[in-house]
Structure formats: structure tokens, C-alpha cells
Design a protein around this nucleic acid. Structure first.
Length: 466
RNA sequence: GUGGUCGUAGCUCAGUUGGUUAGAGCGAUAGAUUGUGGAUCUAUAGGUCGUGGGUUCAAGCCCCAUCUUCCACCCCA
């Protein structure tokens, strides 16, 4: 058989031991903070029924879903018409609908696109077993059939925290605290941007275009990247009247202190109930945060939009201040995500940390602690069968004391064994030959400084115990 | 989905207007050194030039397709 070149699918990656140690460091920090705030873990399957996933992420999202081909002869039961259509209908629209029809028949499962929608499904399915408000965290990979580029992968890990079954704004505050705690622990300076969908709805209402909410937000979101001219162009393109745009512009360029933004917007929203409600919510959250004194900066940013269609209240996005990377954490409140699965009136709020992007940023800024680099702390050199037996007992003692340790598997040349320790960055080596066995004093070498001394097993254990 | 970009040894990269047997550095392995790693020296191994077609007397180099990498747009973590 011909040898095939090993490879993995586009946008996926292997992680070597070094990378995994660092990734686990991130997961550990995140998990610990989640737990401290009283969240509990769940997991859901990598694949969901397509009916669960479709239509939850907007039109774009549907296209980015990885679909799983049915097992068996998936062409069975497919109407002849689908194949017959091929020749006769060639225009693009028909191809589209034919594809949609075909997909529905040959694929009924898909890989999850995020953790929030599966969570909503989970909550509805297990509603009778859960205690509400239900606080859960979930750290698992998700998949998107996107084109890979900087900070964008087809398989990546999300770390979600959500609470469902309460509309208390205390949870918004709690999530901001979680963000602050995690990034502080990771040593990453971030900006927490906050906004509220109701504020955005209020803006659309106040400029007389309530039906254009999505168009307005999508365009607005690009303000810092594209600039006012481009945003205006896009708004025109999306069918907004000049009058509306004129009203919108002063709001978009709103700068300065949070207090001033509130004053301007309160006046702006005098006829918009939803806008005022959004402002009220924002005010509550921001006052709490101000009082709590977070380590990281936060800001009320009305240009923050966030695409996912299910958000209804607060929206949150976090950016690293010292690295060029998209958002590394985002989320918001969704008032009725469970409604579609038959459980209405269940408000939830949650955020998602993008582990892979956080990794890239920490790596770029050299923020991974040195101490996590090596796993094994001490290596026993192997001098032969007798010595082996002797060392195995000492090894068991060290391991029982919680010291990661190992023995070289054969009595190879010392050079080779030392090199092994060196390359694995094992900080200490114990040499136990016949001399040492007789005297009971082991040769203990520090690989970093190069110095070595004779010690008893007890002394070594003490040195290695922190 | 749209536009661009990259691919030669494990890694980073040379490779002339298309012309014999495709090179270097680092790394790896072995030895110099039989109880001591990092430094030095010596030797050795390692390549279907991403893949598949095509043009040509001749292709790493030119053409087409395809896969992959990276980047921008769209969208997003």
C-alpha cells in the first residue's frame, strides 16, 4: 500500500506537550474562577441534531455549520427529482434551494457551533432535574466551517459560563467580576466593553427606523475599524433614510465620560421606552461595577453590537489592550433562547472565553509563567539491574510524596541519560550507583546550576517538597 | 462565500534566463569523553522539491487544477 502523507483537516491543529501544559494552565485558571463563583460543570455531545442548531445564528451561521453525513445509504428515500433537477435547472437560486433540500435529507446531525445553544437545549431537556437559577460552566471545543486566519480556527475551545432562570442584573455584574478575575490572574490587561440591546433598539426607534435594528447595529459595529464615512455608506446601502442617518451620527460619535453619555442618551430617548429601559439596566450594572473597583477598565460603548441574534439585553465583549486580536471573550443576555425548545420565559445571561485566542495573546506577550514549563521534577539515572531495584523503592517514596519523578528505562550511557534530563528540562537528577547504595548517600544534582552533592533520600525529599 | 498569499531535509531558508548528482545553518544520530547534560571538533543519516496533470530534448523554476499556510473582506471566540 502506498504510504500516505499524514495531515489534518484545514483549520485544525495538534497540540504538543509544551502547548498542552500552557493550554491547561489557561483552562485551570478559568475553571477555578468559575467554581469560586459557584458555577458547576456540564458537558454536551460534540454533535447535535441539525434541527437544534439551524436558524439560531443567523443566515451566516447556518452556512458555517459542519454537517455530518447520515450513515448507511443516505441516498435511499431521496426523491428522484433531486437528482433529475441537476440538468434542467442551472440558475443559482435553484441550485441553492436544491442544495438545501438535499442537505436536509442526507445530513441530520451537525457539529456544535457554540456552547450556548446546546446549553439551552440541555436546560429544556433536563428542566425537571435542575435547580434554578442554574449556574453552569462548560469547557469544550466548537467547530465552524470558516476560513482560517489570524485568531480564527475551525476547531477551537470555548469556556462558557452561563446562568439561566433569573433576570437579575446581579449576574451581569458577576460575569464582569469573573472576567476581571480571570484576566487579572492571567496577567492580561483588557478592556471590558458593555452595551445593551435595548439601548440599540432605542436608537433605532429614536431615529425612526425601528425595523432596521440589525442593519444599524451591523454597520455601527464597524465604526472603530472602518470610520464614519464607510459606516454612513453602508447605512445608505442598507436602506436607511438620510434623515435617520443624520439623527444617528451625533450618537455614534458620542465620547467622553459615562455620565455624559447617559445625559445625552436620556434626552435622545425621551420618546423611546425601550431605550430608557436599556439605559436604566446599563446604569444599574455600571454603578455596581464602579463600586466594586475592578482591576480592569470597563466602558459603556454604544457601538458594540455583537452579531448573534439571540441577545436581548446586556452585551459584553472583552479585548486585550496590548495585542492585536479580535475579542477574546464575549456574551450577553438572552431572554428567550429556551422558548424555541418549548420552555418560554427563561432568561439567561452568559459569556464565553475564547481559549485559543487567549493562548495566542498570552504567547505573543510572553505572559506564560516559567514555572509551568516542566512536569517531571527529578530523574533517577539507571546504572543497572541492582541499582534499578534500589531506585524503584525510592521512586515510589517520592511519588507518594507527590513529587513528579521518573527513572531512565535502561542503563544507557550516562551522557545519554543526562541529555534526556536536559532536554526534558528536568531540574534535578539522582545518581545512585553501587557506591551510593553502600553509603546510603545519593548523588543529587541540580541541572540548572550544575552543582551536585551527597544527600540522604530524606534530605532530597525535603528539598523537592515545596 | 469573495480577493490575495505561501509550500524545497525535523526547523529556518538558499537554489542563476528552465540545463549534469538540489545546497546551507540549526536540529538529530554516532564518536572524540566506559560515573555526568548545556560548549567545541569530527563523521553520518535525512529530500517522490505539497499533490495531480500539462508544456519541453530537459521542470524545484513555466502553465492549469487541487490541497495546505497565512492575510484581508464577510462574520466571529
Amino acid at each position: 500500500m502506498a504510504v500516505q502523507k499524514p495531515s489534518i483537516p484545514k483549520g485544525t491543529r495538534d497540540f504538543n506537550t509544551n502547548e498542552m501544559v500552557r493550554r491547561n494552565y489557561i483552562f485551570d485558571v478559568v475553571r477555578n474562577v468559575f467554581q469560586i463563583f459557584g458555577y458547576q460543570p456540564i458537558e454536551t455531545p460534540a454533535m447535535e441534531n441539525l434541527s437544534t442548531l439551524m436558524g439560531k445564528y443567523g443566515e451566516e451561521g447556518d452556512k458555517l455549520l459542519f454537517k455530518i453525513l447520515n450513515s448507511g445509504n443516505y441516498l435511499d428515500g431521496l426523491p428522484e427529482a433531486v437528482n433529475g433537477m441537476e440538468a434542467s435547472q442551472t440558475n443559482r437560486q435553484d441550485t441553492g434551494s436544491r442544495l438545501q433540500y438535499l442537505t436536509k435529507h442526507i445530513a441530520e446531525k451537525g457539529l456544535r457551533y457554540d456552547l450556548t445553544v446546546p446549553f439551552a437545549r440541555f436546560v429544556v431537556q433536563h428542566q425537571n432535574e435542575l435547580v434554578f437559577p442554574f449556574k453552569r460552566y462548560q469547557i469544550q471545543p466548537v467547530w465552524r466551517a470558516d476560513r482560517p486566519q489570524k485568531g480564527r480556527y475551525r476547531e477551537f475551545f470555548q469556556c462558557d459560563v452561563d446562568v439561566i432562570g433569573s433576570n437579575s442584573l446581579l449576574y451581569e455584574v458577576e460575569l464582569a467580576q469573573i472576567i476581571d478575575a480571570i484576566f487579572s490572574k492571567l496577567g492580561l490587561k483588557v478592556l471590558i466593553r458593555l452595551n445593551n440591546r435595548k439601548v440599540l433598539a432605542g436608537i433605532a426607534e429614536a431615529i425612526g427606523a425601528p425595523d432596521k435594528l440589525t442593519d444599524i447595529t451591523v454597520a455601527m459595529d464597524k465604526l472603530d475599524k472602518a470610520g464614519m464615512d464607510k459606516v454612513t455608506d453602508e447605512l445608505v446601502e442598507r436602506g436607511l433614510s438620510y434623515e435617520a442617518i443624520e439623527k444617528l451620527q451625533p450618537i455614534l460619535t458620542l465620547e467622553g465620560k459615562i455620565k455624559e453619555k447617559f445625559e445625552t442618551l436620556t434626552a435622545f430617548f425621551k420618546d423611546s421606552e425601550v431605550g430608557l429601559k436599556g439605559l436604566e439596566e446599563m446604569k444599574t450594572v455600571l454603578l455596581f461595577l464602579k463600586d466594586l473597583g475592578l482591576k480592569n477598565k470597563f466602558d459603556f460603548d454604544i457601538t458594540l453590537a455583537r452579531g448573534l441574534s439571540y441577545y436581548t439585553g446586556t452585551i459584553i465583549e472583552v479585548k486585550a489592550l496590548e495585542a492585536a486580536m479580535g475579542s477574546i471573550c464575549g456574551g450577553g443576555r438572552y431572554d428567550d433562547l429556551t422558548g424555541i425548545f418549548g420552555l418560554p420565559g427563561m432568561s439567561g445571561v452568559g459569556i464565553s472565553f475564547g481559549a485559543d485566542r487567549i493562548y495566542d495573546v498570552l504567547n505573543e506577550l510572553n505572559l506564560f509563567p516559567e514555572a509551568i514549563q516542566s512536569a517531571t521534577r527529578v530523574l533517577f539515572v539507571n546504572f543497572g539491574p541492582e541499582e534499578e531495584k534500589y531506585c524503584l523503592k525510592l521512586l515510589a517514596v517520592l511519588r507518594k510524596a507527590g513529587i513528579p519523578s521518573e527513572i531512565y528505562p535502561e542503563s544507557a550511557k550516562l551522557k545519554k541519560q543526562m541529555e534526556y534530563a536536559n532536554r526534558k528540562k528536568i531540574p534535578f537528577v539522582i545518581l545512585t550507583g553501587l557506591n551510593e547504595m553502600e553509603s546510603g548517600l545519593l548523588t543529587f544534582k541540580n541541572m540548572q546550576t550544575g552543582e551536585q552533592k551527597s544527600c540522604t533520600a530524606d534530605e532530597i525529599q525535603k528539598t523537592l517538597t515545596w
